[in-house]
Amino acid sequence: MKEIKEPIWTKDFIIVSIINFISILVFFLLMVTISSYAVEAYHVSTSIAGLAASIFIIGSLMGRLGAGRLIGNMGPQKMLLIGLIVFCVTTLLYLLEWGVAYLLTIRLLQGVAVGTIGTATGTIVAMILPASRKGEGIGYFSLSAVLATAIGPFIGMFMLKLENGFHVIFYTNTVLSFILLIAFFFVKISLPQTNKKNGQQTGNLSLLEKFIEPKAIPISFIALLIGFAYSGVMSFITFYAKEINLVEAASYFFLAYAAIVICSRPYTGKLMDARGPNIIVYPCLVIFALGMLLFSQASAGWMLLVAAALIGFGYGNFNSIAQTIAVKVTEPHRFGLATSTYFILYDLGLGVGPFILGMVEPYTTYRTIFVSMIPLIVISIPLYYFLVGRKGKLV
């Protein structure tokens, strides 16, 4: 008799994934354009323009930290609604030009909103997915972020070429933000109720445990290292491509990256559910290291695109599997904290990486920077074994 699988693609799963996709798309659309806007509108220095872009990440970390704590008391649906309302308001406020301090404030607050939305949607998805297909489901869900990171910058750069491009961007984002708010009211999720036993003596929890899920820290720390290793690719590929005269090939890098992730994630998610995370994580880390090696030594367009495929398979699949591990090692009533803990450390690696590597760059070359990331990836393999892998298949 054929086994009936519990469904993944429910109406609520699809809507929540769309909400996550659009919020991240707006984030990356602005990430590649807001520096230019700050210079053009307020005539600020390059460093202040960079701050206008990066302060968003600080806000996102604050949002994840707060949302992870409050989800346990308010529930992920209420937190999602709060995040969407703040997101709508801050997106609308971009239409006003009240000075660079105002712009930085709006960027920070919108970052808080996106961090809140991301934590809430991740928690909801972790709760509504069947336990037997959680790895597969989170793999599909995380594709919404992958697509957003590929499409957002492309749309942003295209809109910049239009007449009054910045205003087109701000009006488009405003419309998208209100679509998200409307979409929320079509979600009718029946989440498991947290009882007092599960909610556990909150008073007995340490201050750290009220904001962070300790069980999720080991895999989240590995994600921080891997995110740090990847951050240079994300931030410096344009400069690197000019240095090695492969600008045209580099323009297709993230499309190749996204294509490989989209094709592979459904299979890696199913494999994790069937045989545990180790069978995915170890090969992914090795392939990521090989991809970084090829990327650092690229001298032709095909090498850059093959590197994109290897990095997409290795880094891209590790990311979704690691997120699943963070949830699977945690009790259901702390899924919100587990999700926020994972993304706080992961985003920290992505955010701090460009800053540190950027300070090193004047004293070396981009090739050397990317080569130096390979030992970090390799070290993560035994570190993963001692912190997570030796425990075997997760329940």
Score class of each variant (00 low, 15 high):
residue 21 F to T: 01
residue 204 N to D: 11
residue 98 W to N: 15
residue 86 V to I: 14
residue 15 I to W: 05
residue 394 L to M: 10
residue 137 G to N: 02
residue 38 A to Q: 06
residue 161 K to W: 10
residue 221 F to I: 02
residue 268 T to S: 03
residue 9 W to S: 13
residue 301 G to L: 00
residue 88 C to H: 13
residue 35 S to V: 09
residue 53 A to E: 04
residue 198 N to T: 04
residue 259 A to D: 11
residue 329 V to C: 00
residue 108 L to Y: 09
residue 31 M to D: 13
residue 342 Y to K: 04
residue 256 A to N: 03
residue 199 G to L: 14
residue 234 M to T: 10
residue 161 K to Y: 13
residue 128 I to N: 04
residue 36 S to V: 15
residue 394 L to W: 03
residue 78 K to P: 10
residue 77 Q to S: 12
residue 316 G to H: 11
residue 107 R to T: 04
residue 264 S to V: 13
residue 253 F to G: 02
residue 304 L to K: 13
residue 34 I to Y: 02
residue 328 K to I: 06
residue 58 I to F: 07
residue 324 T to C: 09
residue 149 T to A: 12
residue 341 T to D: 04
residue 263 C to F: 07
residue 389 G to T: 03
residue 6 E to K: 15
residue 249 A to W: 11
residue 283 P to C: 05
residue 205 L to I: 11
residue 165 G to F: 13
residue 210 K to S: 04
residue 156 G to K: 03
residue 194 T to M: 11
residue 81 L to M: 14
residue 372 S to C: 03
residue 337 L to H: 01
residue 181 L to P: 14
residue 5 K to S: 09
residue 197 K to P: 06
residue 374 I to H: 04
residue 160 L to F: 00
residue 208 L to M: 13
residue 331 E to M: 12
residue 274 A to Y: 02
residue 82 I to H: 14
residue 32 V to S: 09
residue 244 I to G: 01
residue 36 S to C: 07
residue 154 F to L: 12
residue 197 K to R: 14
residue 254 F to V: 00
residue 237 I to G: 08
residue 70 L to I: 01
residue 11 K to R: 04
residue 256 A to E: 00
residue 294 L to I: 12
residue 114 V to K: 10
residue 22 I to G: 04
residue 302 W to E: 12
residue 104 L to I: 09
residue 308 A to K: 03
